[in-house]
């Protein structure tokens, strides 16, 4: 449903391309992980997949960029908002602040879409439940923890019922508790709803348990693509500065297999 073909992108006023001839095709319902070192182009790829490149950041593009077969450049952010959702690193920046309770904050996007009240209420209740923050509904979104704020941000996007959810390192500014809460919410989302999810993440252990497919970036180029096990267990990940999961590391020391495990589950099997 989203397709990049030899897609390159330059931020305004820069000579170095942020994305360099990236080709990537994402099908409906897939869960895709994006890995790469800092500055490898993860965020830029997330922006491209959600249309913020080229619609928010101007700058120059080359190659093909389509959403549902339509040229991404011919759509605008207003049209894309109900279809593609983007969740960022910093929870504080994502709370619009224009509403005073969590329930109303989630409603903000729905109000902008012009939905009737009944539908808004139903969608808000559903989103609150999905990320497990029903008890925060009447609180101020500024009076809660970072992990809770990030779940509010995710709920605010989910309530808009996008067909694609893009998350750009959603847990990088959270403590371990907050991280666990966000990933628990994500796993619930994956098991209960058919939605395309694209997740850029450093925490490979989590990534490996969710993803159907992983793409690895380095220097704006697509360096590897495939199943989590194939991509994340390879030596290449060390060269790209991505690292490997703790399970792969443990297994690499103990075993002499070609295919290292990347999840706890796989590690258990391999070590038996």
């Amino acid at each position: 449903m989203i397709e990049l073909k030899k897609f390159s992108y330059w931020y305004p006023g820069t000579e170095q391309s942020a994305l360099d001839r990236v080709s990537l095709s994402i099908a409906e319902g897939e869960f895709i992980g994006i890995v790469g070192a800092n500055g490898a182009g993860k965020s830029t790829l997330c922006y491209a997949l959600s249309g913020f490149v080229p619609h928010f950041y101007n700058g120059e593009t080359e190659g093909q960029h389509t959403f549902n077969g339509q040229d991404m450049a011919s759509l605008d952010l207003g049209q894309l908002a109900g279809q593609v959702g983007l969740v960022f690193q910093n929870p504080f920046n994502q709370i619009s602040g224009a509403r005073f309770t969590v329930r109303e904050e989630i409603a903000f996007g729905l109000e902008n879409l012009g939905l009737p009240q009944n539908e808004m209420r139903a969608r808000i209740d559903e989103a609150l439940e999905l990320v497990n923050i029903q008890d925060l509904a009447e609180r101020s979104p500024f009076s809660v923890s970072g992990g809770q704020q990030q779940r509010i941000a995710i709920a605010s996007i989910l309530a808009m019922q996008p067909r694609v959810l893009v998350l750009d390192e959603p847990t990088s500014q959270l403590d371990p508790d907050g991280t666990r809460d966000v990933f628990t919410a994500l796993s619930k989302l994956v098991s209960t709803r058919k939605i395309t999810v694209i997740l850029a993440e450093h925490k490979l252990e989590w990534l490996a348990t969710f993803c159907d497919r992983v793409v690895a970036l380095g220097g704006g180029k697509l360096r590897a693509e495939g199943s989590p096990q194939a991509v994340l267990s390879s030596e290449q990940m060390l060269r790209l500065g991505v690292g490997r999961t703790q399970y792969s590391e443990a297994a690499a020391r103990l075993l002499r297999t070609k295919q290292l495990p990347v999840t706890l589950e796989q590690a258990r099997k391999a070590l038996k």
Partner: peptide, 13 residues
């Protein structure tokens, strides 16, 4: 980032 988050919430709808 704040402005992008707003656009993601259909601010320009």
């Amino acid at each position: 980032e704040r402005a992008m988050a707003l656009e993601a919430r259909a601010f320009s709808s």
